[in-house]
Computed example of a mutant assay.
Amino acid sequence: MIGVLIERYEEKHYPIGPPDPIEAIKFRMEQMDMNKSDLANILGYKSRVTEILSRKRKLTLKMIRNLHEKLNIPYESLIADY
């Protein structure tokens, strides 16, 4: 019972939002021991990967689908505004 009360209190006062899309990609790359070239095979050109990771280019719908399907990153993490 106390555990449920603590959980509700934390959800109300300290909500945890979805992670930043770029940070989610970087985290998954680190987990899978990937480099930018590996990610370029999923997203397109290596220069495009650099632009995305430096936040100069936004993810397209096709990129989001590819990241979800090939790296198992949840859609919720990739669609959040950044």
Rank of each mutant, 00 (worst) to 15 (best):
Y45M: 08
K26G: 01
K46D: 15
N35Q: 06
R65N: 07
Y82N: 11
K36V: 08
M29H: 05
K12C: 00
Y75K: 11
R48G: 05
T60D: 08
R48Q: 12
N66T: 11
P15F: 05
Y14W: 09
L61Y: 00
N35C: 10
H68N: 09
P74Y: 15
E69R: 14
N41L: 13
G44Y: 02
E76Y: 12
L43P: 04
N41Y: 10
R28G: 03
E69M: 12
D20H: 10
Y14P: 00
T50C: 10
H13F: 12
D81W: 06
V49E: 04
L78M: 02
P15L: 03
T60Y: 07
E7P: 03
R55L: 09
G3T: 03
T60W: 07
Y14Q: 06
E7C: 03
I2N: 15
M1N: 08
N72I: 01
D38L: 15
K62T: 14
S54R: 14
F27R: 00
H13V: 15
L71R: 11
Y14S: 00
I73P: 00
P18D: 15
I16L: 15
R57N: 08
L59R: 01
M32N: 09
D38M: 15
D20R: 05
D20E: 15
R28K: 12
E11M: 10
G17P: 01
N35L: 12
L43D: 05
F27M: 05
S77V: 07
E30Q: 13
L59T: 03
F27G: 00
R28A: 04
E10C: 05
G3A: 13
I64H: 04
I42S: 06
Q31W: 14
T50N: 11
M34N: 01
I16N: 12
S54K: 14
I25T: 03
K62W: 06
L5K: 02
K70T: 00
L5G: 02
L71E: 03
E23L: 06
M32S: 06
Y45T: 13
E76W: 13
T60H: 08
N35T: 02
M1E: 11
P18S: 12
R65M: 06
D33A: 08
K26C: 02
P21M: 03
N41K: 09
M63F: 05
R65T: 10
L5Q: 04
D38A: 15
F27W: 07
E76S: 12
V49L: 14
P18Y: 14
G3I: 04
I6L: 05
E51M: 06
Q31N: 08
R65P: 00
K70Y: 07
R48M: 10
P74V: 11
S77E: 12
N41C: 10
R65L: 10
S47P: 01
L61K: 03
E23V: 08
Y75V: 12
K62C: 07
E30L: 13
K46G: 13
N72Y: 09
S54Y: 07
P19I: 15
L78E: 00
M32G: 03
R48C: 05
D38H: 15
Y14N: 06
I64T: 11
D33K: 14
K70F: 10
V4R: 11
A80N: 13
I73H: 10
N72L: 06
D38W: 14
L39V: 07
P15G: 03
I73S: 09
G17F: 13
S37E: 09
S37M: 11
